[in-house]
């Protein structure tokens, strides 16, 4: 299991592995929005939580189609299926690796970008908390989508169509936490819902994703 995690992290760092790609994409999206909307501080402050979260969603989505597809193409996925690791474990580890190279860096860089979006300073902490709680769900849900579309030629678009609707609860509760945090409102409820969505996806989706991969390998 550790070996698989280390391999995926190592592959991500090597040329063409995609580390930093999601991060750069996130940066671009969040920089482009103020340019498009115009320099009105009040407007930017109002849309900041939504823009930051949508940016994070899209950045996560960017690298998902490679999650299982590369292993499928070179035959590694078949070999992993016959290896003494359960497929559920493979999915969980690969989701974790995906989060470590996309979700975690996004979370850490978000306060810098929040500055560009003129988010209220009180919201910074909650932005980081919300992303830290929510982005693992993005990786696991994405892994499920990637498992459903593995083996399809050009499955990337279908993957987006499958995964983005499933991101809606995380988006709603995630932005709610940041919005409330920025104006100093009570935010326990959305925070708990956000954590709940993440925990439920982490508990259930690796099993569903493993079943999808087994079916797709047949």
């Amino acid at each position: 299991m550790i070996a698989l995690l280390m391999r995926d992290l190592r592959l991500a760092m090597r040329a063409g592995g995609g580390f930093g790609l999601g991060l750069a994409f996130f940066l671009m999206v969040v920089v482009l929005v103020p340019l498009g909307v115009g320099p009105e501080f009040a407007v930017l402050r109002r849309i900041a939580p939504g823009v930051l979260w949508v940016g994070a969603l899209l950045a996560c989505l960017l690298s998902l189609d490679r999650l299982f597809a590369l292993d499928f193409e070179d035959g590694s996925l078949e070999l992993l299926a016959t290896a003494p690791i359960p497929m559920e474990g493979v999915v969980a580890i690969k989701s974790l690796a995906h989060w470590l190279v996309t979700g975690l860096p996004l979370t850490l860089i978000a306060p810098v970008l929040a500055l560009l979006m003129n988010l209220a300073p009180e919201g910074y902490v909650w932005l980081v908390v919300a992303l830290a709680l929510g982005t693992p769900a993005l990786s696991v849900i994405g892994a499920f989508g990637a498992a459903l579309t593995v083996g399809l030629k050009r499955g990337g678009l279908l993957l987006s169509l499958l995964v983005l609707p499933m991101y809606v609860p995380t988006l709603i509760f995630g932005t709610e936490v940041v919005k409330r945090g920025a104006v100093g409102m009570e935010l326990g409820t959305p925070l708990l819902f956000l954590a709940g969505v993440t925990l439920a996806s982490m508990a259930l989706l690796p099993i569903a994703a493993a079943a999808a991969i087994r079916a797709n390998l047949k």
Binding site: R10, L11, A15, G17, E73, D74, L79
Partner: peptide, 20 residues
């Protein structure tokens, strides 16, 4: 299919499967 990762070295490829 060989199940070989192009960006890893020969030893890294083999070491991964040995560890698994």
């Amino acid at each position: 299919a060989n199940g070989v990762k192009a960006m890893l070295t020969v030893r890294e490829n083999l070491g991964f499967w040995a560890a698994v």
